[in-house]
């Protein structure tokens, strides 16, 4: 492994800006260089470099024992990851699209998430892959899967919205001894506006810590993933057109949930709007609302509200998908309502 790293994975070293996708790649690559117990499994991740090219060049650099092209059987290779983790390896499993994590639901929830509790030892596994709508991918290439796992004790769930966070959270996830579901939004992968120059150093973004995207005194928007960027747009509009000061909390990690960050913000603003791209029923907004009810009821000046996708499969036609997804105008409307409450 004395050969030089592939050029396309050295952008940060050259001081060039990277996309969120490139940040994920760099994070994976650097962890594999740092720790030879880290290895990759997934469909078409080797020769092809992954459907989105996240692992382009990895097979040549690390070889076939550390970059394993698997049969199209998510349950099988995720289960094999569990076995490898038992033996001290640190598998990173790619779901080609996170929608396909469902076949691995059994082994993830029944086996991997319970392993430590059953006395069978820690499960340092990352299951990562592209999620989210807006790409006209239809019902099976657009889902957000966080809440399917949120309810299972034992998982951590990560969902970055910036290149900086994506790389730092990836490193933290790989180094974590608990199983981590890592969601990467397709619409953010190559978004030019998200390109940034990352620190050329080994940094980590700790799991379980939210980030205050912007400060404001009138209203708290709690959000994550692609909705962070729509929330920023909405916040600017609310500020310019209505004079409403909007604070935005990017959760970054959904499990463990940074309850303290949300409570602290609520205590400053008295109003909370939760925005998520995931569907409405059983979405994380419900959990956040009950936690604020438990911990900060006295500080609420208005009901806790949410803006989410509608409760349907993700539709294909652009007109339908746009209607399905939360839009900036929805956030502005809800924000206005709360500010005036």
């Amino acid at each position: 492994m004395n050969q030089p790293a592939p050029e396309h994975l050295k952008k940060t070293a050259r001081g060039e800006p990277v996309t969120l996708l490139e940040a994920v790649s760099e994070g994976l690559f650097e962890e594999m260089v740092r720790d030879d117990s880290v290895f990759l499994m997934g469909e078409d991740i080797g020769v092809y470099g992954g459907a989105f090219k996240v692992t382009r060049g990895f097979l040549d650099y690390f070889g076939g024992l550390r970059v394993i092209d698997t049969p199209i059987a998510e349950g099988g290779f995720t289960g094999a990851a569990a076995g490898a983790a038992h033996m001290g390896l640190r598998p990173v499993v790619e779901m080609q699209f996170m929608d396909f994590i469902s076949p691995a639901y059994d082994v993830l929830t029944n086996y991997i998430a319970t392993s430590l509790y059953r006395g069978a030892g820690p499960m340092p596994i990352v299951v990562r892959g592209p999620v989210g709508g807006g790409n006209r991918g239809g019902p099976f290439h657009s889902q957000n899967v966080e809440m399917a796992f949120f309810h299972t004790p034992g998982f951590k769930i990560v969902y970055p919205s910036t290149a900086y966070d994506a790389k730092g959270l990836m490193k933290a996830a790989i180094r974590d001894d608990n199983p981590v579901i890592f969601e990467e939004h397709k619409a953010l992968y190559r978004a030019p506006t998200l390109r940034e120059v990352l620190p050329d150093e080994d940094y980590v973004v700790p799991l379980g810590k939210a980030r205050t995207v912007r400060e404001g005194s009138d209203l708290t928007l709690v959000t994550y993933g692609a909705m962070v960027h729509k929330s920023i747009e909405a916040a600017k509009k609310l500020e310019q057109e209505d004079g409403v000061g909007v604070e935005i909390i990017d959760l970054r990690t959904l499990l463990p949930l940074d309850e303290d960050a949300i409570v602290e913000s609520l205590k400053r603003t008295g109003r909370v709007l939760i925005v998520h791209e995931d569907t409405r029923t059983g979405g994380i907004a419900g959990e956040i609302a009950i936690r604020l009810n438990e911990r900060a009821f006295e500080w609420l000046d208005a009901p806790i509200l949410r803006v989410t996708a509608i409760d349907s499969p993700v539709p294909y036609a652009g007109s339908l998908e746009d209607y399905f997804l939360p839009q900036v105008e929805d956030i502005v409307t809800a924000g206005r309502y709360l500010a005036a409450y």
Partner: peptide, 11 residues
């Protein structure tokens, strides 16, 4: 069987 596949993969 899946898990043992991973254990023996490590071997």
């Amino acid at each position: 069987l899946e898990v043992m596949a991973g254990i023996t993969l490590s071997f």
